[in-house]
Design a protein around this nucleic acid. Structure first.
Lengths: 127, 127
DNA sequence: TGTCTGCTTAGACAGACGTCAAGACAGGCG
DNA sequence: CGCCTGTCTTGACGTCTGTCTAAGCAGACA
């Protein structure tokens, strides 16, 4: 097997380097949009955005579900459902240790999205 | 009453400076999530993400709807609907000039979102 | 071993979303 | 003035999403 195959995903969401130039710099191709849109969609819900923030900002890099659930006026299954969405988008990872399940962020994808949305610092009145 | 009223928007999406610290640095409050999530949701559709890219990267800073529609296998009304969604999220602005309607990006909100999703450069293998 | 706690899965339901066809409106041109 | 082109709005339809209750599963502890 060669290192790169044609069937490899067009965009590698796990790469450390930005996968693509900023959205405002060049028109992004349909394939890139199809890969990145689901991650943005996953963050497009207030509950999931807060969950993502709680996980990503957690000390030690991980947080127990038992600490996430009481922070919302939602039932356990609903929180679990949102966490599953974040998991399937590749934004977080879960691991069971004994009784509890711990979630941790995958900063690579956040970096990809931040790079995608980045804009030049300012319109900068041209000289 | 103090200078700030409770009814003021918690987050100013049009400010040039980032409204809030990165999502991974501190847990974002519910109000912030409620304001920013809709913008992410709007970008969470592949068609709208491409539209946003086409508008934001357009030369001259604006683009005619007549140039956007033929780029997709979708009907005019559907593109118009997606553009309306982007408009209502505050991501773009529209202006009619004669027969055609021109769209232009609002980079402030993109900046807010990029700042929100930004992560420290790398985990940096500790010495 | 039995039971308890914590998390996920399964099923159901109201509401929102993406898409299209048809109609309405604005502006240009013969 | 009347028609034509280009875009937006409206209404409809099927699908997806967010939420809940009920049930299932995994591990801990007496």
């Amino acid at each position: 097997m060669s290192k790169q195959q044609a069937s490899l995903p067009v965009v590698d969401l796990n790469a450390d380097a930005p996968c693509c130039p900023p959205l405002a710099q060049r028109r992004i191709p349909a394939e890139t949009a199809a890969v990145l849109a689901p991650a943005l969609k996953a963050l497009g819900d207030p509950v999931r955005l807060q969950l993502m923030s709680m996980i990503a900002s957690a000390e030690g890099g991980e947080v127990c579900v038992c600490d996430l659930t009481p922070a919302f006026d939602l039932t356990g299954p609903t929180i679990s459902h949102h966490l599953k969405t974040l998991r399937e988008s590749g934004l977080v990872d879960a691991e069971r240790r004994g009784t509890w399940v711990y979630y941790r962020a995958r900063p690579q994808i956040l970096r990809q999205l931040a790079a995608l949305l980045s804009v030049e610092p300012a319109p900068a009145a041209q000289p």
